[in-house]
Amino acid sequence: MKAADLATRLGLRAEAVCRYYLSSGRRSGKYWIVGDARNTPGRSMFVRLFGPQIGKGAAGKWADAATGEHGDLLDVIRESTGLADFRDVGREARRFLNLTESEAVPSPDIEIDPIPTGSPEASRRLFNMARPIFGTLAETYLRQRAVTVLHGASALRFHPHCYYRPEDGGSRQTLPAMIAAVTDLHGRQTGAHRTWLSNDGGDKAPIVTPRRAMGDLLGHAVRFGTAGTVMAAGEGIETVLSLRCVLPDMPMAAALSAAHLAAILFPLSLRRLYIIRDNDRAGANVCHHLADRAHRAGIEPIVLSPGLADFNDDLRHFGIQAVRELVGEQVIRRDRIRYLHGAA
């Protein structure tokens, strides 16, 4: 299918396209009004929701009064998702339209390149389709869990309609989700982690498995900051982010499970590793195993233990000052001066 035909198909569902990719805007009569094609809040861009399929005034055509830019809905998909390659834009448009492979005939304009479900490439596509968390339900979710330090959290994004399929083979549905990029020591994305959220962002979605990972995870992690001689590593994203609230400048990594924390790879520059413990049997076992690995690699391991099940429980039940005091007793003096005293 050629690009022009794909744009026409999108135009037939112009309002649905706008609600999905330009969610910061709103409908006003025959138009969708938003700040720009990158989904910025505002009123300078107008998208036609109705009109002929092709030609002047066609549905899906848009113009930005502030910049003079104009285009069709393929341009909207490209700008709002940040996809640079037009082949990726075409694939994303087909995904939105739910076209089958038989309906989408390959052409020189847009190639079809099937991607294995759950592969590292699929995880990169998912992350690229998501948006920064600020002002989204993902930010609401984290703040509901008392996580207030979100600078340097570019590894986290939000997808308003992330596919979820029950493990019992039930019908697929779409739910809002926090998307986390899993990267290797060189910053290359190898996987992704999804946390499906309730429709108000107040908690995880009421489904059987609200958290799932995809891609190549072994040895890798969701990273916050670039590790130097010191870093901290833990299991869950919320647990690691809770510790960042009192040590906001210390590089940290969330390995996503006890097994993956035990196998996390060490940066060559690392000299001291803070192991963020979960208070359960698996947490105790992984601390012992990871500390042994660190010792053998010439790295000093120090375990940080919460008062309750994990540091997010501590943060929500006791407050940030209590967590700061608890962590301050366990961090060595030079790191307490470097990292803890700057915590807000």
Score class of each variant (00 low, 15 high):
Val17Ala: 04
Ile320Thr: 14
Glu79Leu: 13
Arg172Ala: 11
Arg172Phe: 00
Tyr339Ala: 01
Ser269Thr: 13
Pro120Trp: 04
Phe96Cys: 05
Ser171Arg: 15
Gln321Gly: 08
Asn285Leu: 14
Asp310Phe: 07
Glu300Pro: 00
Gly55Pro: 03
Gly60Asn: 05
Ala294His: 03
Thr229His: 14
Ala104Pro: 01
Tyr339Arg: 01
Lys56Tyr: 13
Pro108Ser: 10
Ile33Ser: 11
Ile299Ala: 10
Ser242Leu: 03
Asp36Tyr: 10
Gly90Ser: 05
Val208Glu: 15
Phe158Cys: 08
Lys30Asn: 14
His151Ile: 08
His151Gly: 03
Phe318Gln: 14
Pro116His: 02
Gly283Ala: 11
Arg211Asp: 05
Gly51Gln: 05
Gly60His: 08
Asn98Phe: 02
His193Glu: 07
Gly307Tyr: 09
Thr195Asn: 10
Ser23Pro: 00
Val327Gly: 00
Lys30Pro: 00
Val208Tyr: 07
Met252Arg: 03
Gln173Pro: 00
Arg95Asp: 14
Gly283Met: 11
Gly319Thr: 06
Asp88Tyr: 00
Gln53Glu: 15
Gly71Tyr: 09
Ala254Asn: 01
Leu256Asn: 05
Pro176Phe: 03
Arg333His: 15
Pro120Glu: 02
Val47Glu: 04
Leu315Ile: 07
Thr183Trp: 02
Pro301Thr: 09
Ala192Tyr: 01
Glu15Ile: 07
His288Tyr: 12
Pro114Ser: 06
Arg145Phe: 06
His295Phe: 12
Val105Trp: 03
Gly71Asn: 02
Thr140Ala: 14
Met231Pro: 03
Gly51Ala: 05
Glu235Asp: 13
Thr209Tyr: 13
Pro176His: 07
Ser24Pro: 00
Pro52Phe: 11
Ile110Asn: 02
Leu218Glu: 14
Ile320Trp: 09
Gly215Thr: 09
His317Ser: 15
Leu49Met: 02
Leu218Phe: 12
Gly215Ile: 09
Ala221Lys: 08
Thr8Asn: 11
Asp292Cys: 12
Ile133Ala: 04
Ala284Ile: 11
Ile276Glu: 03
His159Ile: 07
Pro114Cys: 08
Leu261Val: 08
Gly152Gln: 05
Cys162Trp: 00
Leu243Ala: 07
Glu238Cys: 08
Arg87Ala: 13
Arg244Thr: 08
Phe266Gly: 01
Trp62Leu: 09
Leu290Trp: 04
Ser269Gln: 14
Asp5Met: 13
Gly234Leu: 09
Ile337Lys: 14
Ile299Pro: 00
Arg26Gln: 14
Asp292Ala: 15
